[in-house]
């Protein structure tokens, strides 16, 4: 009799909800990594998530934790309110680049500056996905979107914002790194980073954020495979992967 070994299953941190994300989109990968980390740390039952506005507006449907839904860009402020009155809970926001780096820039910078003990999962896919692929603050120079049809002209439309580099200058930040989801090796590294970010919070070591370079095949007008290549060939050169800030106390954490 053949024996079957289960090698892949839904993490406990997930509900039984089929995905609404487009084929080839890496939101699903990012969601799964967060759910696996919450399960491995044994904190699912004491976690409160804060969903954004954007493609991941329905993030609360997937994670098997309490969840609140923030106005566009305000997730870090809402998470501040939750965490300050429930300091023993794990509180995380999950935000896209339009949400975090454009309309919510004030909220994210000040949550980081205050050193709020929250974890931020920041999805950078260089466009506004939910509204159909408009230019985001992270859109690459020359990149075509529905609101930069001739390619982003930095003379008139400004330069992309490198969020991890910027936030890493703030003293309240304990952990701030950029990873990518374009291949299995990088996905593993991304998971480790997400774990470290949540460990930072669990130990009260300050603000933690993982920026994840992600794909948007639908709005980029590419196949899923070509989207992964685009991340590797175009996004990583502009948004270098790396550890932008890991405080000394966090460097001591062994997991």
């Amino acid at each position: 009799m053949a024996t079957e070994n289960l090698v892949y299953d839904r993490p406990e941190g997930f509900t039984d909800t089929p995905t609404h994300y487009c084929p080839g989109c890496t939101h699903g990968v990012a969601h799964r990594l967060v759910a696996e980390v919450l399960e491995e740390m044994g904190v699912i039952e004491k976690t409160i998530g804060v969903a954004p506005v954007g493609c991941s507006v329905f993030a609360y449907n997937y994670f098997d934790t309490d969840f609140v839904e923030a106005p566009h860009g305000r997730a870090p402020a809402m998470a501040t309110g939750v965490k300050r009155v429930m300091p023993d809970r794990i509180v995380f926001t999950y935000q896209g680049d339009g949400d975090l780096a454009s309309i919510g820039m004030g909220e994210i910078v000040h949550a980081a500056a205050r050193g709020e003990n929250i974890t931020v999962i920041f999805i950078n896919n260089a466009n506004y996905g939910m509204t159909g692929g408009q230019m985001a603050p992270t859109t690459l120079p020359g990149m075509k979107t529905t609101s930069s049809p001739n390619g982003r002209d930095v003379e008139t439309q400004g330069y992309p914002i490198k969020v991890s580099e910027m936030l890493s200058t703030l003293d309240g930040v304990g952990y701030c790194v950029r990873r990518s989801l374009h291949d299995p090796k990088n996905i593993r590294l991304a998971k480790k980073a997400i774990r470290m970010a949540f460990e930072t919070q669990a130990r009260g070591l300050g603000f933690s954020m993982v920026e994840l370079l992600s794909t948007c095949p639908t709005n980029w007008g590419m196949t899923p495979v070509n989207s992964l290549k685009f991340v590797e060939e175009h996004m990583i050169p502009f948004y270098p992967l790396g550890d932008y800030k890991i405080s000394d106390a966090i460097k001591q954490i062994k997991i």
């Binding site: 409160i48 106005p71 809402m78 309110g81 300050r84 004030g106 910078v109 000040h110």
Partner: peptide, 21 residues
């Protein structure tokens, strides 16, 4: 808990988060 927010926008959303608890 007392937090001086970065703006009234920040303040009301902190209130929103805390009210949810």
């Amino acid at each position: 808990t007392f937090v001086q927010a970065e703006s009234e926008l920040g303040a009301i959303n902190m209130v929103y988060g805390a009210a949810c608890t």
